[in-house]
Design a protein around this nucleic acid. Sequence first.
DNA 1: GAGCACTGC
Length: 902
Amino acid sequence: MNEEVWVKVIRIYDGKISLSMKGIDQRTGEEQVKDGQGRLGESCTNGESRGKRYGDTYDGPPKRKSTMDAWELNQMRQAYGVKRSRIEGKRDVEDPFAEVDSEEEPNKEEEEDVEIQLNGTVPPFLAGKLAGNSKTYQPQKAARIPDGSLERIAQNGSRFMSDAREKKMELRKQVERARREKERDADPMKSSDVDSSAAATAIQAWKRQSRSATYGIRSHKSIREQRESLPVFAVRDQLLNIIKEHDMTVIVGETGSGKTTQITQYLAESGYGEKGIVACTQPRRVAAISVAKRVSEEVGCKLGDEVGYQIRFEDCTTTSTIIKYMTDGMLEREALVDPDMLKYSIIMLDEAHERTVATDVLFALLRDAVRRRKGSLKLIITSATLDSSKFSHYFDDCPVFHIEGRTFPVKIYYTKQPEKDYIEAAIDTVMDIHVSNPPGDILVFLTGREEIETCCETIVQKMSTLYKSDASVSELIVLPIYSAMPSEMQSRIFEPTPKGKRKVVIATNIAETSITIDGIYYVVDPGFVKVNAYDAKLGMDSLIVQPISKAQADQRSGRAGRTGPGICYRLYTKKAYEREMAANTVPEILRQNLSNTVLMLKAMGIEDVVHFGFMDRPKEQAILAALQELYILDALDSDGRLTRTGKYMSYFPMEPLMSKTMIQSVDFGCSYEVMVIIAMLSVPDVFYRPREQREKADKAKQQFDDYTGDHLTLLNVYEKWEDSEFSRTWCSDHYVHEKSMRKARDVKIQLGKIMGQLDRREGRRDSSIVSCKGDKEIIIKAFVSGYFKNCAKRVNNAGHYDEEGTFRTLVENTPVHIHPSSALFRKGGIDYVMYHTLILTNQEYMQCVTKIDARWLVKYAPRFYKQAAENELSLMKKREKIEPLWNRFDQGQEWRLSRGRR
DNA sequence: GAGCACTGC
């Protein structure tokens, strides 16, 4: 009588086995689940309670539904042994993801044996173009002579640093040993804190220096006197004439010329403000805010009235705003909705020589807008001396206007011989300056946090022995600064130096442009910088130490001449400067993943991205890789045109993988959770880990760890912070960066707003932001549907489970490892993982890792993955014979996986 | 059992 068909489902998850029954009730047509004891569970085909899609017009990825459904139907048929028509009738639901929340999935028994293969997706519009070249893709290098002394030093690194590192390791081992012995002997109630050990306190000595804050020197001149004393004032009329006669002008304004604050005012005064807004872009937010503040004081208005600023989370402008300072990224996003820049009568791209990606994109967009608007839009580009002719040529051979700067002369010293060890040389130079030169603070440029800390410690140690042997030596205050440092500590470098003492600031690149410190008379420049070299083929970031460019070297030495004549000690030879250094730093756009930029261009209606009018065109392969990525994400169709999904993705200010995940999460019914996690992923690392308190910090982090991995760990952190009512003390108690958390909250709010805009666009009445209420698996599945490209399997070279913990990426088969900071580090029972980024340091590491079920890849990325057929060899076994490729060679059969090695 | 230049939307 009862025609129910029940199937036994064995579920192996996290090492536990559960047994349940699954079937279809013939009377109701509902799918049902029984637990191991035969009790009836909740129906699981009903997708209604899940989040809804963007209304009924959402068309989704065109081929996905059918492919996926076919596969699923097949699986169900095999598992259930039910007639085709019956299941298909049941599966005929609107929502392609109706099944995603089912507790049990068919075919669980095969979980351990799933093999995943790449489909070898090549976008039809790129067929043939990807051939071969990608193998030869090399990231650009800054140094001109690869075998020069600088490049050699950069590659070998500092011997001093490695020795210091070894010593510290040894010290830590000793401390650890002592701690263990103490624990064994003494009573366990007594805390044996590593932090209080003598060794640690010695290292700590320099950190305890602190001083009361008193700020800067105020000028006694009136605002008008100050304005008229600036070099740019002398050429005011001349400059306005040139701008009047030409649509585009390049201005070479040296530091201290007053161009940033004055030119906008001149333009407003001469009537440009009546036809539209006078805009001025800055590469950094702090610059936009502080300049706007200064100018509003000069104009004598409230900030936000006639003079305002706009940055990502803050729009301080009104309808009466005439002069607007903004970040370049902000203007770039405005170009999405208003490519002709109709709001503006004149736009000044300030600090253009810094060549941020946003400025580079704006170069081409604004040049076109100026040409289209025929005289009603003007463009000013400010640049350093070195590129002015290149800039002029690019902007239709426009005039170049020079404004002298107001800085003091800087005497430059080079070393006679290349320095063997730049850290040691830097330390010695600082000590030398302090002992034998007249007063004036010192600024040292190093490449990273570790170098800076070691350098600080060594100088403090050396100084303390010096004080003892020579009482006449004045005190040297040692101050580190780098971006990842908490802001309270950063502000210490601005405190004026007490009389009779000297300050040495040891900084990264942050002091090159972002931060200006008063009172610097001496600059020590070893000539190196840490840069990100992005490998487009592997999708891997790596931080490498490189020689700086001439422009950078000059920028650094210029930092000594801001308050008086200064001296710059370059720890390299004059020959190295002249012959080995590149003239300019390689623009960011040539070193970066371009998928977000390409998506924006496509969203602006620019079809031929490869031939877009960049000033420095990125390598074709980098653009093609971006196009391919966008195609895989369904942001582009098979002709390379923007899809609806792609359009929606472009509304989000983040990389495409994230925006895709965000959009997909609505269908999965967990958009709230995904929104929080994405916000957390788009801010700098939230976990604070001072090196003297590592163990405490690690313990604090473990409280948040989720067994599935780091994505849900981040969610935990945010929710706990929210529970604490966004408390600052909660952050410091749990070793969490408050600055990052607050930014994450801002991003979350912004994401919510964008989602709301999408809802309105789709005419939806209910919000698409829905919570899955603790269903972890759904959240991870949503991420898989966007991040399927970033997955790895735990296998060794021979294709077996790797005992050492090596994974291999599914796309390029690159060996990678779980980063020690991950919640999954050294955890067993993990076959497949999804990661957020790859970073190359000592090893290739996956950062932010979560374990996944391999079949989700086939289910949610059917265009990209397929399950290996039973009669085929294991993919890993085949790798011994076959080269896995995204078939770049054979246009005719581009859906085939790989090509035999002949 | 290890290491995170710097921005921006």
